[in-house]
Simulated scan of single mutants.
Amino acid sequence: MNEAMLEYLEIDSPIHKLTGATKLICLILWSIISMLTYNTFILGFMVIFSIIIFKISKVKFKQISFVFYFILVFLIINNIAIFIFSPYQGVEIYKTRTDLFYIIGSYTLTIEGLFYHLNITLKYFSIIPIALLFMVATNPSEFASSLNKIGLSYKIAYSVAIALRYIPDIQHEYRDISFAQQARGIDMSKKAKISDRIKNSTSILMPLIFSSLARIETISCAMELRAFGNKKKRTWYSARNFEKRDYVAILVLLVLFIISVVITLKNGSRFYNPFI
Score class of each variant (00 low, 15 high):
Y124D: 03
N241V: 06
A192F: 08
R234N: 13
Q182F: 05
L114S: 11
Q182G: 11
D176M: 13
K199Q: 15
Y158H: 03
I209W: 13
G151Q: 13
I162A: 02
K231P: 00
C221Y: 09
F143A: 02
I162S: 01
L118D: 00
K191F: 05
A161L: 04
I198V: 12
S153M: 07
A249Y: 08
K191W: 03
F179G: 04
I209S: 02
N230Y: 10
N241Y: 08
H172L: 12
I111V: 15
K193I: 03
M188Q: 06
T202S: 14
L208S: 05
A214D: 15
K123M: 11
I120G: 02
Y237I: 14
M135C: 09
I170D: 00
A137L: 08
S238F: 13
F125Y: 14
P207H: 07
L118C: 02
N148V: 02
I177L: 09
I204P: 00
I250K: 05
I162R: 00
M206V: 12
L225H: 07
T110R: 03
L164A: 04
A214F: 06
G151C: 11
L208C: 06
N139D: 15
I111P: 00
K190S: 10
I204W: 01
K232W: 04
S153Q: 05
K149I: 01
E173V: 01
A137W: 01
I209E: 10
Q181D: 08
F115R: 00
G229Q: 07
R215Y: 13
I204S: 02
E112M: 12
E243Y: 03
R245S: 12
T235K: 15
M188R: 02
D169S: 09
N148S: 11
P207D: 07
L114H: 07
D169G: 06
I156K: 12
D169Q: 12
S212Y: 09
Y174G: 00
W236S: 11
Q171F: 08
Y237V: 10
M188T: 02
K155V: 14
Y247K: 10
R226L: 13
Y247G: 04
L213Y: 14
P168G: 06
Y158R: 04
N139W: 02
D246R: 08
R184K: 15
E217S: 13
S203P: 02
E112K: 10
R184G: 03
L147S: 02
K199M: 12
S159W: 04
R184F: 06
A227M: 12
L208Q: 05
G185N: 07
W236G: 08
Q181V: 07
A192H: 05
A144C: 06
K231Y: 11
S211V: 11
R215G: 02
A239G: 09
M223W: 10
H172E: 10
E112Y: 06
K149E: 06
A227C: 15
A137H: 04
T121M: 07
I156V: 14
I130H: 03
Y116Q: 01
R240Q: 15
K231M: 12
L132H: 05
I127C: 03
Y158P: 00
L208M: 15
K149C: 01
T110A: 09
K190A: 08
K233Q: 11
F143C: 04
Y124R: 02
Y116L: 06
S212E: 10
K155M: 10
I111K: 10
Y174P: 00
T110Y: 09
K233M: 07
F134E: 03
K155Q: 13
